[in-house]
Design a protein around this nucleic acid. Sequence first.
DNA 1: CGGTAATATATGTTCTGTCCTATACTTGTT
DNA 2: AACAAGTATAGGACAGAACATATATTACCG
Lengths: 210, 210
Amino acid sequence: MSLEHAILGFLREGPMTGYDLKNVCFDESASHYWTADQSQVYRTLDRLESRKLIRAKRERQTTRPDRKVYSMTDAGTVELDAWIARTDPPPPLRDPFLIRLRFASDLPADDLLGLLRDRRGALQERLESLRVRSAEEPAEPPDRAALLHRLTLDAAVADVRAGIDWIDDSLELLEARIEQEDPTPPGGQSRLFSPTRGARGTVTDEGSAT
Amino acid sequence: MSLEHAILGFLREGPMTGYDLKNVCFDESASHYWTADQSQVYRTLDRLESRKLIRAKRERQTTRPDRKVYSMTDAGTVELDAWIARTDPPPPLRDPFLIRLRFASDLPADDLLGLLRDRRGALQERLESLRVRSAEEPAEPPDRAALLHRLTLDAAVADVRAGIDWIDDSLELLEARIEQEDPTPPGGQSRLFSPTRGARGTVTDEGSAT
DNA sequence: CGGTAATATATGTTCTGTCCTATACTTGTT
DNA sequence: AACAAGTATAGGACAGAACATATATTACCG
């Protein structure tokens, strides 16, 4: 359902081909909150067309293969507006990493901490790439649609940051607990230099304070 | 894959039936980071058994229908440990609400704000139920496994709070923008009493500061 | 001339997850 | 006696998504 309406949303802003939807809309514009496979896009377009929510116009091209330019119908606009006004519960958190963590109690202490640090690194990378994308957007959104797009980026950033902060808190709790369980640190190695965590601020205001 | 390993994880802590896995493990213990359908649990158990990662023992019961108690095999333990040590990228954010928001620019201002406020309410409810569940857990986790379980709860709480904070920021930005676009507030209704947002602290320290 | 990349669409297959229905036995309620 | 609720397992049907592969055209590069 969501993909259908995302496509309707994009098509309302202007006619487009399946190719553009995939490579421009989903890969470049919406990938931080929704992704879609190429095959999924084309099949969904077929379905939307057969339901008369969009309409296709085949275009002969001399320099490129033929393409089908889709545009909204009135029925499509109605359907989209109805869907947008709908309210349904926020999607539940669903993260394999938390399964791992939950059952990682038998891991050697270092591996356990390593698990968290790896995840932290991955989130940090994601945050950086979101920062880049954010920077590409106009600082002052020109219209309401641009502002809403900006808000979706903010949501993704907030999500990743929350993950990083949670990891930092978890690392602290775990390190304390591990020390308490085994009061003999292995050869001064674990406590003496700890590349564990940067200052919290570094995470929060994206590097400017490094 | 994840469900399989979640089941292996639970079974490592002790033999269990499909019924218990569904009603105790997934519905009560793990629901804040992973859920599973009843039919999915039983089918996954079948699959794990056929792959020799778990083993079933049929138990005749006089007072209740027969049940199959599953327990781990050595192969299952190996598989679980390997999976836990694996590192894969954090799941991308994937939220239909952000699709709605992104394409909601044509909505009347009040409806747009209503969309966000509704979502905020739903998240607040979720936060409350997490708070209740958190309170049921021992304040000081007795062992490492209990600590890890606690961390998963913290992750869920952090996730929901990030969502609420993001909404609050978004409401502020949107209200400013709407006012700027239409400098004539409709009959003093929108600005005079604004049930829009509680103090930020209220969200963060769960109601004690109401 | 051959290979790769970009443009453009389409289909087959598989997996995960959800919903629904069915079956069977026991206990407690009306 | 009928019915609901709890315990316990199972399977059909289907939607959404992921993965793989196929095909056609043109442009560019070595």
